[in-house]
Simulated assay, not measured.
Amino acid sequence: MLLFWAVVFGTAAIGNTLTTRIDAIRYHVPFETWHIVVNEFSSPLVSLALIPFLLMACDRWPLHADTWRRYLPYYVAASVLWCAGHVAGMDLLRMAAYALGGDAFDPGGLVLQFVYEYLKDVRTFFFIVALCHAVEWFGRQVVGEASLLAEPDDEAAPVEPVDRPERFLVRKLGRDFLVATADIEWAQAAGNYVNLRVRGRDYPLRSTLAALEARLDPVVFVRAHRSYVVRLAQVTSIEPLDAGEARLHMADGTVLPCSRRYREALRAVASGAEPAMAARA
């Protein structure tokens, strides 16, 4: 994603540099070429430095149908901070570059500059936010987004107990699939989602890991890390590490972390549930 934005901003900077240079020649404006290059490239460089923080915010506070009213004011406030960081970083880069070239950069009135830049930055800010959410939504459609199947059909028998879900409903590319809880190998926290690993594929479930863990059978699924809940039957061995931590070797060859906080509890449950695995731990 960061590479994509580097190409977008870099292409825009090159285009703006060329057009500004052409305008300077056409209208006989005494602009040095290196001044134009510094002015046009300093802005996208600062924006690129700020983008990782914005992408993390989009992941941490996604704007869904049930959250956008609560989070939108925060995004508006963040757009102001984005602009402030953009203007400050851009001016500092230009001052440093001009000083190296034996010249001085004058940003002019800071209030007027901030208002001018914000009118541009707010569009860039929300374009990035919108595109980030669109890519995430499309990815969930392709991969498949899971949800708890809590309400059975009217004429069918219940497919899950109230406390322990037996199946998850996965919607993928407009079609619905049932994923059995017994097929889940592990679950990994990912922002406001939990990725359910099933036969080598991840299905995002809109939930916290703690909420999902509370719905799963603690004899079958055990917390191994603040970001992982694993199915004991899928753990082939526990490799001890320094400082009390460990690695979990899964049946498909994947290695997952096991923190010191959860290691002994996992081994205790494993000793009763999987003797063969406990012997290799």
Rank of each mutant, 00 (worst) to 15 (best):
M1H: 09
F4M: 02
V7L: 03
V8W: 07
T11E: 04
I14C: 11
G15E: 03
L18P: 08
T19Q: 14
R21F: 06
I22S: 13
Y27E: 11
H35S: 14
I36S: 12
V37Q: 07
N39W: 14
N39V: 13
N39A: 15
E40I: 09
S47P: 01
I51C: 04
P52T: 00
L55W: 02
M56T: 15
D59R: 15
P62F: 12
R70C: 10
Y71Q: 05
Y71G: 08
P73I: 01
Y75P: 07
A77C: 13
A78Y: 06
S79H: 06
W82V: 00
H86E: 02
H86C: 00
H86Y: 00
M90Y: 05
M95N: 03
A96L: 14
A96I: 12
Y98V: 09
L100V: 07
G102I: 03
D103W: 08
D106F: 03
P107D: 01
L112T: 04
L112Y: 01
L112Q: 02
L112W: 00
F114H: 01
V115L: 10
E117P: 10
V122D: 00
R123I: 11
A130C: 10
L131D: 04
L131V: 15
V135N: 09
V135L: 15
E136Y: 07
Q141M: 15
V142T: 11
V143T: 11
A146Y: 08
S147E: 13
L149T: 06
A150Q: 13
A150W: 03
E151R: 11
A156E: 15
P158I: 00
P158G: 13
E160K: 04
R164E: 12
F168H: 04
L169D: 05
K172E: 14
L173M: 08
L178W: 00
A180H: 04
D183T: 05
I184P: 08
W186L: 10
W186S: 11
A189L: 11
A190P: 11
A190R: 14
Y203T: 07
Y203H: 15
P204Y: 03
L209H: 01
A211N: 12
E213R: 06
E213N: 05
A214T: 10
V220L: 05
R223H: 08
H225Y: 03
R226N: 04
R226C: 04
A233W: 00
Q234E: 07
V235R: 00
T236D: 09
S237P: 04
E239T: 08
E239Q: 05
P240L: 01
R247Y: 03
H249Q: 11
G253H: 01
T254A: 15
R263V: 11
E264Q: 13
A265L: 07
R267T: 13
A270H: 07
G272Y: 06
A273K: 08
P275C: 07
